[in-house]
Amino acid sequence: MRVVAEHVSKKFNRRPIFKDISFTVEPGEVFGITGRNGSGKSTLLRIVGGLLTPTGGTLRYHNDGSEVTHENLHRVMGYVAPYLTLYEEFSAEENIALYARIRGLTHTRRDAQELLERVGLPVDRTDPIRAFSSGMKQRMRLVFAILHKPPLLLLDEPISNLDAQGMNTVYGIVADFRTHGTVIIATNDAEDIAQCDRTISVEAA
């Protein structure tokens, strides 16, 4: 998956957050977006994820040589962010079943349990994820992002709220993506940045 951003700018209430950001992320690359708090890392990541329309500039996505339209972006992309809330009235397994259903995936209970094991969540909990700790919720977000095996993974501060084991899980997933996908991480954490092949600083742009 290749992501090409050209002259992207964003304004909120006419106040420019950043302007004229251009970069290309090649398949198999782990790309980092850095910048101090409030510089617009998350905003840029949301724009890359198609969740926010940029004020100016364009974004293009290529998967296996064919262009992915904005409308179909959600199919080829996983997104993890602390501001992402899952459906907390459902249990972990119900959540997975729900996402699979909306995405039109055939997903068995075994697949769901394998996913939960992979991110280090208990497979036998049937209570709503509202009761989960913040670290467990973060793991649940990882499940949400990789359930449909997307070729593009966007991570916003992925190791927030996670312990050492959780960090290893995240970096394990990132390592997996090197072989078959692309990762973009918005972060200031030194360990996250160490995972990246290249970084871009938002304020420098």
Partner: peptide
């Protein structure tokens, strides 16, 4: 609940 973004990531606007 703040799940708008989750739904945006799951499905097409039309859906």
């Amino acid at each position: 609940r703040g799940t708008t973004m989750t739904l945006q990531l799951l499905a097409k606007p039309m859906a």
